[in-house]
């Protein structure tokens, strides 16, 4: 593996094949915990950790697992890793553990985890697999963070509320009150806000892509192609 391939893996996870807004995998936690930045990023990082560990640990044993029991073994490993993460959060980040609740154990059922293990780790070496899992997890984290920020600012006028749950009492004063005296736009915090927000993010990404494509296309034939494409 050369450097370019690692870069491609990162680019895939964060942008080109982003699980949250391109593959649209793992939407249940994405929609349910993205009401604040802290919740979203925490679950995202927990998922990224599980993905990196599961891909990284499954890749080296891929040749020793018979094909027929491939899936049960993979799921077993993922479930173990998730449970370990759950125990650790329960022990050392109790507040966050309570807030994220059922969505931590549900990382097991997040199809993006098994999808990367199947699609990538079962065919590649350990290091790139771990990187792939982590990059995909980071891509999901990024979406969760941005969506969480949108919903939190619009819904409550704050950023990083609940950060003390993740980082301990010393972080209690780190909450940013973006809009002072804000009455709150509740729908952003409630489930509909998650759907609308995700829709806007997907639209935003498609728009950026379209613009990039247009630029790329308009370079060789600058005069005629551009206005045509603008209609799309």
């Amino acid at each position: 593996m050369n450097l370019q391939e690692y870069k491609d893996i990162l680019h895939n996870g964060l942008w080109k094949q982003n699980p949250g807004i391109v593959q649209l995998l793992g939407l249940c936690p994405l929609l349910a915990v993205s009401s604040t930045v802290v919740n979203g990023v925490s679950l995202g990082l927990a998922t990224a950790l599980v993905m990196a560990l599961s891909s990284g640990s499954i890749a080296p044993i891929r040749n020793y697992v018979p094909n027929e029991i491939r899936i049960p073994v993979f799921i077993l490993i993922i479930a173990v890793l998730v449970t370990v993460v759950q125990y650790l959060m329960n022990a050392y980040m109790y507040g966050l553990y309570v807030v994220l609740g059922i969505f931590i154990p549900l990382i097991v059922t997040n199809c993006i985890v098994l999808a990367r293990v199947e699609a990538f780790a079962s065919k590649n070496a350990a290091l790139p697999s771990a990187l792939d899992g982590f990059a995909m997890g980071l891509g999901l984290t990024a979406v969760l963070g941005v969506l969480g920020a949108m919903r939190e600012v619009l819904g409550k006028g704050t950023l990083f509320s609940g950060i003390d749950l993740a980082l301990g009492d010393m972080a209690q004063g780190w909450v940013l009150h973006i809009i002072p005296d804000y009455k709150g736009f509740l729908i952003a915090i409630l489930p509909p806000g998650a759907f609308i927000g995700l829709g806007l993010l997907i639209a935003g990404r498609n728009w950026l892509n379209l613009r990039a494509e247009q630029k790329a296309r308009s370079k060789p034939a600058p005069s005629i192609a551009a206005p045509e494409a603008a209609q799309g």
Binding site: A79, T83, V84, Y87
Partner: peptide, 18 residues
């Protein structure tokens, strides 16, 4: 045997974390 091996390994890891 393979499956048993992984189950035992998994149980060991879970038990020790617990």
């Amino acid at each position: 045997v393979n499956l048993v091996f992984f189950s035992v390994l998994a149980t060991a890891i879970l038990a020790s974390t617990y």
